[in-house]
Amino acid sequence: MKIDPEKCIACLECVDFCPMKCIAEQDDVVSIDQDECVDCGVCLHAGVCPTDALYMPEESMQYPRAIRAQFSDPGVWHPSTNQGGRGTEEMKTNDVTGRFRRGEYGMALEFGRPGTGARMSDLEKVLQALIRMDVELEHDNAVFAFLEEPLTGKVKPEFRNEKVLSAILEFKIREEQLEEIVRQLRPVLAEVDTVVSWGLASRFAEDGTLPVRARLEALGVPTRPNAKINMGMGRPIVEP
């Protein structure tokens, strides 16, 4: 995002809307720190600029910078996945896709949430650790289009410094791996230079309970009283 200095009247109405706190006034000129801006478009969509000085510049739509908006503005779709947002369908459609079966857990590590943003390079240490662990990485996540191939755990050099509102690493483990994965991941996550929200997807047992909650408690992993729950109402076919 940029501000047209010819139009800006320095009213500062847009400043507080920026999730990355990167709009500032200096010497009576309001500008956006281009290195920190994630091109989420919140300032523009807020509709608070009285002179229409905010705009998305051409360079924000060209690679490598284009990935900022793709990972930050949910209205911008990823060309590689043909959908918006930052994750996959994960457990949202698990009742029709069977992505996570009994005996498996899904995991998601969202870098930069809540509220801090992430450089693509922030993913590397954790991704390299995941590659060493015996986990099944989710290749349908939009992040994969920007990783070195064959998979080394490195982001392609031209995208390493791109800042995004958040990016997610998703993977699947076997139930019996839980304790070991948690033990190995905790110290790696502690070294990340931004915040990381960690989620775990688990099937309900036949009796409607979630046995994984007790296992997490035993591991000393604090879980919340709330969760996202697939209600099991999906069916494979939609009639025309």
């Binding site: 994960e90 457990m91 698990n94 009742d95 996570f100 899904g106 998601a108 870098f111 949430r113 809540p114 509220g115 801090t116 905790r186 996550l189 502690a190 070294e191 990340v192 230079d193 931004t194 915040v195 990381v196 929200s197 960690w198 989620g199 775990l200 997807a201 688990s202 099937r203 309900f204 409607g208 979630l210 994984v212 909650r213 997490l216 992993v221 604090p222 879980t223 919340r224 709330n226 969760a227 996202k228 729950i229 697939n230 209600m231 099991g232 109402m233 999906g234």
Partner: peptide
Amino acid sequence: ARDLDLKPHTAFLSLGVHGKRSLLP
């Protein structure tokens, strides 16, 4: 879900926020 005779399928649980927590408000 039990009252309505629905069978919840999958839960997505938060395992908390990790990393540089000093950045959190």
